[in-house]
Computed example of a mutant assay.
Amino acid sequence: MLTVKPILPRFGAEISGVDISKPLSEEDRRAIIDAMNKWGVCVFRNTGLDDESHIRFSRNFGRLELAPLRRDGKGRLAHRELFDASNLDMEGEINRDPSAVMYRKGDRLWHTDSSFMEKRTSYSLLLAHQTPKEAGETWFADTRSAYEDLPQEMKDKIENLKGENSLWWSRKLAGADISDETIENGPKAVHPIVHTHAGSGRKALFIAAHTKDIVGMEPEEGRRLIRELIKHCVQPQYVFKVKYEPGDLVIWDNLCTMHRGGEFDAENEARDMRRTTVREGTEPNSKDDDDPFTELFTGMPKSLSRLTAPEAEA
């Protein structure tokens, strides 16, 4: 039987009582979904998962996105269902390439995975393989409770607004040398900044570092609103962090959370994290043959072009 230990009163829980390295019963699968709908982030400790069982477990929740193909067709990980959220190169050594270091800086901003894609991500499932001695946590923020606590005047103001999201925009915010022209001409996705979270029926904000502009607003006004809403969401009452040990798995629902990677000594300590990503609205084990991430990264800006395969956000 699933045991649930809340982390915050309305957000986050540690889950035990089920062996997720083995095939799930329908009862356990449903119980995990129910826990995710209520808590938004679920932490499983010492799971015993490897790459194959990580993928198998993730398929219980929908169609898994495929990591973008490298230009040389190779990858550090054997399965494209795994996004490489490490600071390691192809040989498993710490990657100190300036392009890779710069790309990873964007992961330190509050974001939602893949909001720059037309097809949104629901669950992200991040498994720790190797962790630094100090720090390297992931921070999570509750965008349902944050929305509910907004003044009614702000709720009315943002109810029907839409945000324009760009991966290259968030990388520029983190310090990458990317021109405004490149961002404007690059791929963007438009999503409502307030939506009803399907699993709980609660409204949530859907806005973070990838959100570049508010449709119909002047850039300065829209970006000021984006910053204000992010600042509201990351107040202490909505936020907690997860410290990992190898074998720990965290699932978060991108449709009701934001997250960011914590700092650690990335120049000298390895952090090997691998993430599966579930497409919103898909059935367990569903598949199709589209490959939107490879298409997106084909147009990578020149300042990041030495990367042969981008790391995932975590």
Rank of each mutant, 00 (worst) to 15 (best):
Ile230Lys: 06
Arg279Trp: 13
Lys133Ser: 13
Thr211His: 02
Glu218Phe: 08
Arg59Thr: 05
Lys38Thr: 13
Cys42Lys: 05
Ala266Trp: 13
Glu181Asp: 10
Asp149Tyr: 11
Ala128Val: 00
Asp180Glu: 14
Pro23His: 12
Ala174Arg: 11
Arg144His: 02
Gly201Pro: 10
Arg202Ala: 11
Asp156Lys: 13
Phe57Leu: 07
Pro219Thr: 05
Pro301Asp: 02
Val101Arg: 11
Leu249Thr: 00
Tyr147Phe: 14
Lys243Trp: 12
Leu24Tyr: 06
Phe140Thr: 06
Pro236Glu: 09
Glu280Ala: 15
Glu221Met: 14
Leu304Thr: 04
Gly163Asp: 02
Glu280Lys: 13
Leu66Val: 13
Asp288Arg: 13
Glu81Met: 10
Thr182Gly: 07
His79Arg: 14
Glu263Cys: 09
Gly281His: 12
His232Gly: 02
Ala266Phe: 15
Ala198Met: 14
Trp169Gly: 01
Asp97Gly: 15
Glu313Arg: 12
Lys172Trp: 04
Ile251Arg: 01
Ser124Gln: 08
Leu125Ala: 11
Asp19Val: 11
Asn95Asp: 15
Pro219Trp: 04
Val41Thr: 00
Gln235Asp: 06
Leu205Glu: 00
His79Tyr: 13
Gly262Ile: 04
Gly222Tyr: 10
Gly186His: 03
Thr294Ile: 10
Thr294Asn: 11
Phe293Ile: 09
Thr182Tyr: 07
Ala208Tyr: 02
Lys105Gly: 01
Asp89Met: 03
Lys172Tyr: 08
Met154Glu: 11
Ser115Glu: 04
Gly62Tyr: 03
Lys203Gly: 08
Phe116Gly: 03
Glu137Met: 09
Ile230Gly: 00
Asn285Ile: 05
Thr276Ile: 05
Asn37Met: 12
Asn37Arg: 15
Ile178Cys: 01
Leu66Pro: 11
Thr196Leu: 13
Arg30Tyr: 15
Phe83Ile: 08
Asp177Met: 10
Gly281Val: 07
Pro284Asp: 04
Leu82Asp: 00
Ala35Trp: 00
Ile7Asn: 02
Asp213Met: 09
Glu280Val: 09
Ser86Ile: 03
Ser99Ala: 15
Gly261Asn: 05
Gly136Met: 04
Pro98Phe: 14
Arg227Trp: 07
Pro310Cys: 10
Leu229Pro: 03
Glu148Thr: 09
Gly262Glu: 02
Ile94Ser: 00
Lys157Met: 15
Glu81Lys: 12
Lys38Phe: 09
Pro284His: 02
Ala314Asn: 10
Met154Ser: 13
Lys157Pro: 09
Ala314Val: 08
Lys38Ser: 08
Lys38Val: 11
Thr112Ala: 08
Asp288Tyr: 10
Thr277Trp: 07
Arg171His: 10
Arg45Met: 00
Gly40Ser: 11
Glu159Gly: 02
His232Cys: 02
Thr47Gln: 03
Lys188Gln: 14
Gly106Asp: 01
Thr131Arg: 05
Met217Glu: 05
Gly175Val: 09
Asp156Met: 13
Gln237Trp: 06
Ser21Ala: 11
Leu167Gln: 07
Ser286Ile: 07
Asp50Gln: 07
Leu229Asp: 00
Thr112Leu: 04
Gly62Glu: 10
Cys256Gly: 08
Arg120Val: 06
Glu91Phe: 14
Arg104Trp: 05
Leu304Glu: 01
Gly48Ala: 05
Asp84Ala: 02
Lys38Ile: 12
Ile193Met: 04
Tyr147His: 09
Val43Cys: 04
Leu127Ser: 00
Ser286Tyr: 14
Glu164Ser: 14
Asp272His: 10
